[in-house]
Design a protein around this nucleic acid. Sequence first.
DNA 1: GCTGGTTATGTCTGGGAAAACATATCGGAA
DNA 2: TTCCGATATGTTTTCCCAGACATAACCAGC
Lengths: 118, 118
Amino acid sequence: MENDPRLSLRLHFIQGLTFGRGKADLLQAISETGSISAAGRRLEMSYRRAWALVEEMNAHFRSPLVESSRGGAKGGGAALTELGAAVLADYRKLEDMLRAAPELDRLRNALTDMSEQK
Amino acid sequence: MENDPRLSLRLHFIQGLTFGRGKADLLQAISETGSISAAGRRLEMSYRRAWALVEEMNAHFRSPLVESSRGGAKGGGAALTELGAAVLADYRKLEDMLRAAPELDRLRNALTDMSEQK
DNA sequence: GCTGGTTATGTCTGGGAAAACATATCGGAA
DNA sequence: TTCCGATATGTTTTCCCAGACATAACCAGC
């Protein structure tokens, strides 16, 4: 009952900001692991990249989606802000809505059957 | 009543196939102009690119979305197949559904106000 | 048998994004 | 005061895709 690997939804707003499955999964992984680096490992992306995505999100939203702290016993950590959690939830809602749409099934059925291809 | 320039929806299926605003607009332009090259001009993309997109779509769907003919008085032309029209219509439906969703408004409102930026 | 506009492809190259690599910094705990 | 794991960035390298350019094939009509 994990996320449907066959589909992802990318929203493209003006001025180049996009928000899609990658950022949503990253937010979720951060909220579940408590750190950017652990989230990066889970999603098999470099810390560099995960951090860059977080920075991009924080910059494009009215207030940060992720807040982080350095140092300490565990080296630091990160967590979703209230807005971060809300954005993630809204995105998942849109995903669910899409997944439930009959038009999506029709589109899928129109695709070539890839089950036997590499 | 034109398409919302602030938003675009990209569906990403397995094996690298994506279907988003660009391909949808191209299909629509082909159906309205009757040729790939005219559609490309309208959308300000090279014929090379427009044709490549058509080829990609035709390859990934069970049957072609666009059928074309060469030569003749007008040099040739292209038109949507029944499936092509159906795919386009379904995609627009999904767009509309998304646009009407309250979650999308919430996401937009959470973005930084870009009205005063370059 | 030319003409013209279109479809259909091949090739080359520059730029930009992603990955790889490298540090610097932080601070609680032991 | 040393250590560790995490945050925070700078720099370099790789690589792929987009666009530019070029050319062939097609065919109704004149």
